[in-house]
Amino acid sequence: MSDPVSAPEPVLLGTIGGAHGIKGEVRVQSFTADPEDLGAYGPLRDSKGTVFTVVSARAQKNVVVVRFAEVADRNHAERLNGTELFVDRSKLPAEGEEEFYQADLVGLVARLTTGAVIGEVVAFHDFGAGDILEIAPEAGPSVMIPFTEIAVPEIDLDLGFILVEPVAAGLEGTVEAREGEESDEDGASS
């Protein structure tokens, strides 16, 4: 069996959190459109190639409580905390026009509507209030912006970039401050 790292196109579908109850159930942060569809695409695998077959999944607050066929008790469930669950992209439904998977955006260049490059998309986060894009600049700490149509009005997978509206993304002062720091480091005055 191949592990997701060597699989043609692994896609992260969820991350196991803590154990739930005493019968081996776990809490999973699901990244599927319908969180309970975690097992709809076949068995999942971790980064080591271990198979996890979803027997049941039920939504509970902001996670899915999952029973895996391979996990029999709470002790085993506790050892899985932090395990990422993957499926090969070929198992997922094809995207329609104007659709994409979040994984497709990681690695794209993030540009402001002014044309200035602000960094590279490195991750998606969901802290409960909506999707957040993490963008890492060449220097300095990464920035997080809301992943909304207003903040990110254009995505071009073919050309490899996303367009970011700085005011809607909450970056207007941050980006200007960084550009000023870069000018100071280059010896130019701002």
Rank of each mutant, 00 (worst) to 15 (best):
S2Q: 10
S2W: 12
D3V: 03
S6C: 09
A7I: 04
P8A: 13
P10N: 08
V11F: 05
V11Q: 10
G14W: 03
I16N: 03
G17M: 03
G18Y: 07
H20Y: 14
G21R: 09
E25G: 07
V28F: 01
D34I: 12
P35K: 00
D37I: 02
L38G: 00
A40Y: 04
Y41G: 01
L44H: 02
L44I: 01
L44M: 11
K48M: 13
T50W: 02
A57W: 00
A59P: 09
Q60D: 05
K61P: 00
K61G: 06
N62F: 04
N62H: 04
V65A: 01
V66G: 02
V66H: 04
E70M: 04
E70I: 05
V71D: 00
A72Q: 11
A72Y: 07
R74T: 06
E78K: 15
G82H: 07
T83V: 15
T83D: 03
L85G: 01
V87S: 06
V87I: 15
R89S: 15
S90E: 07
A94R: 15
E95K: 15
G96I: 06
E97W: 12
E98I: 07
E99P: 04
Q102W: 04
A103H: 05
L105K: 05
V106L: 11
L112F: 08
T113L: 06
A116F: 09
A116E: 12
I118E: 06
I118T: 09
E120V: 15
E120T: 15
E120P: 03
V121S: 01
V122I: 15
A123Y: 04
A123D: 09
A123E: 04
D126Q: 07
D131I: 10
D131Y: 12
I135D: 06
E138T: 06
S142A: 15
S142V: 11
V143R: 06
V143W: 02
P146A: 11
F147C: 05
V152A: 07
D158A: 13
D158P: 00
G160I: 04
L163S: 12
V164L: 02
A168K: 14
A168E: 09
A168M: 12
G170N: 06
L171P: 14
G180N: 09
S183R: 14
G187C: 09
S189A: 09
